[in-house]
Every structure is written in structure tokens, then in C-alpha cells.
């Protein structure tokens, strides 16, 4: 098992490099101009070279000096700025993830245990409606309702309570996914023979559901968490702009407007890195939860907690 994790951790950097390469090449091929310089440096390195050599120069700078280049207009290195904004977004994402799990998983269990009943159908209807609404519309709804009509909350982010609306927006945009997959996974597990067998042994229903069934159902749930993080990050980006928060969203918007490929590329690296780490963490959680798998996993194994294709 140790070999497996070593392998996964070692693979993070190469994976990020590959992803960066793909994006780099795509961006370069789409811009269409021959002399387009992808990344601007303080010392003007890499100017006028071919795309591939520009890429290698870039990777070199990133890996050795942690230098993501400079902003072409101000000539200031973007690394620190980017880290600051990114850190803010990460904190929001983390908090949102926690909240989402705290709300979504119990809701999914609730629906699964009462499968087919009115409660279940209500939950399904609500999740479907929520998941169909894009995040800024949710944000709009929040603002309309809480700020305008009820006059409870401010939009100005003066103190802690003002984070309710942005957090609420982000959480709402992903909670439906978690609820749905929890419900599906729990339904599948509750149908299994060992659940009936455990009940017949006299184990209390509550224990069977929350201890035994849930533990078994955690596998698909944990798998989905990796992709949820991606959506959460995007949600944070949108919400940043809406509520004027100092996160990645604002930073990126400016970068796009001024066509600073540096920033966008760097952000892509950060995000890709985060998602890889989340993937490894998800696998770790999976193995903690499912000890029976521990013996079967070696450095040869592929990814354990695989995300689901398409919709849950």
C-alpha cells in the first residue's frame, strides 16, 4: 500500500506537466500568430523561440525558480499576487466543501432510506431544480431575496456574516450532485444481501444504515469529491466577480481582459495541481474507509477513486 501512495504522489508533478503542455499547445495553436509569445519574463527569456522551446523554458522557470513570469504591463512578477488570490479561493473552496458534505450527505441518506416515498421525491425534485440553475443566477436569487427584500444581509463584505451569501451560492451549486450520488450509492448498498443479513443478526437499523451501509457507500461519494472540487473552484470564480471578493475570479477577469496568458496559464497549473492532490487524498480516504482493499493495492494499481462519467 505504501508503494501505491508513493507512486501516486510521484506522479503528481508529471501529470501537471502533461496537462500544462496540452493547454500550452492548444493555446499556442489557437492564437494563430507566429511570433506570439506565451509567457513574459522579467529578463525577456524565451522570446521568438518555437512553441515547444517556449514551453520548456516555462517549465524550467516554474520548477526551479517558482517563477510564473511577469505581468507585461507592470513588469511585476505575478507569483505573489497569484498566490494570494489563489489562497483566498482555496480557503473558500475548503469551507464550501465541508458545508456541502455536511448538508448533501445526510440529505442523500434521508432520500435513500425513504426511497419511493414523498420525502424522497421531494428531495429529488429540489436537487434537480437547484442543479439546473447556474451559479450566478443562484447568487442573484440570494441577493434579491436576502439583500433586497428582507434587507438582512449586505453585499459589501464588511464582516464575517456577509460571507453567507457567497458561500451559500457556491454550496448550493454543488450540493445537488453530492445528494444525488449519496442517494444512488446508498440505494445500491441497501439492496445488497449483507444489509439484510446484518439486520437479521439483530444489529440496530440505525447502526446498519449509518455505520455499515454508509461506509460501503462512501466509495462513489469519495470519487465524486474530486470533480466536485473542480466545480467548487469554478463556483468561487464566478462568485468572486459577483460579490467583488479578492479571489481568483477577479484576478482572472482582469487577466483575460488584458490577454495576459501568464496568469491564466499559471492559474491552470495551480488548479491542476490542486485537483491532483485532491485525487490522491480521495484515494487515501477511500483506503481508510475500506480497509479490506488495503492488501490488494500495490504500486501497480491504477487510480482507485475514479470519478463518474457525466451525470450521477
Amino acid at each position: 500500500m505504501l508503494g501505491y501512495f508513493v507512486k501516486r504522489v510521484l506522479l503528481i508533478i508529471p501529470t501537471v506537466i502533461v496537462v500544462t503542455l496540452v493547454i500550452f499547445l492548444l493555446m499556442a495553436s489557437l492564437t494563430g500568430t507566429d511570433t506570439f509569445r506565451m509567457v513574459t519574463y522579467a529578463d525577456d527569456a524565451g522570446t521568438g523561440n518555437s512553441v515547444l522551446s517556449q514551453f520548456f523554458v516555462y517549465i524550467w522557470h516554474v520548477l526551479t525558480k517558482f517563477d510564473f513570469g511577469v505581468d507585461p504591463s507592470t513588469r511585476r512578477p505575478i507569483t505573489n499576487e497569484l498566490l494570494r488570490h489563489y489562497g483566498f479561493t482555496m480557503r473558500m473552496t475548503g469551507a464550501a466543501l465541508l458545508l456541502t458534505l455536511l448538508i448533501g450527505v445526510p440529505a442523500g441518506i434521508f432520500a435513500a432510506v425513504r426511497r419511493g416515498s414523498a420525502g424522497d421525491r421531494a428531495v429529488s425534485a429540489v436537487t434537480m431544480v437547484i442543479s439546473a440553475v447556474p451559479s450566478f443566477c443562484i447568487a442573484f436569487g440570494f441577493v434579491m431575496f436576502f439583500a433586497v427584500k428582507l434587507r438582512w444581509l449586505n453585499v459589501l463584505m464588511m464582516d464575517k456574516t456577509d460571507y453567507i451569501m457567497p458561500m451559500g451560492t457556491i454550496v448550493l451549486s454543488v450540493v445537488a450532485s453530492i445528494t444525488r450520488i449519496t442517494r444512488t450509492a446508498m440505494c445500491e448498498v441497501l439492496d445488497k444481501q449483507y444489509v439484510t443479513a446484518m439486520r437479521s443478526l439483530g444489529l440496530r437499523n440505525r447502526s446498519v444504515v449509518y455505520r455499515h451501509a454508509l461506509k460501503n457507500a462512501l466509495v462513489p461519494i469519495v470519487s465524486v469529491i474530486s470533480s466536485i472540487v473542480g466545480y467548487l473552484i469554478c463556483g468561487c470564480i464566478v462568485v468572486d466577480r459577483f460579490f467583488s471578493l479578492p479571489g481568483l475570479g477577479m484576478y482572472l477577469a482582469n487577466a483575460i481582459r488584458s490577454r495576459t496568458t501568464n496568469t491564466v496559464l499559471a492559474a491552470a497549473i495551480f488548479i491542476s495541481f490542486t485537483m491532483c492532490c485532491v485525487g490522491v487524498l480521495a484515494d487515501a480516504v477511500y483506503l481508510i474507509v475500506n480497509p479490506a482493499m488495503r492488501e490488494n493495492v500495490s504500486w501497480r494499481s491504477g487510480r482507485l477513486a475514479r470519478g463518474k462519467e457525466g451525470r450521477a
Partner: peptide, 10 residues
């Protein structure tokens, strides 16, 4: 592996 919104932005 990149969330789609971000990919579109890129």
C-alpha cells in the same frame, strides 16, 4: 481533469 468553466476561460 480541468473543470470545464476554467478550460473555457483558458
Amino acid at each position: 481533469s480541468i473543470p470545464s468553466l476554467f478550460l473555457a476561460i483558458v
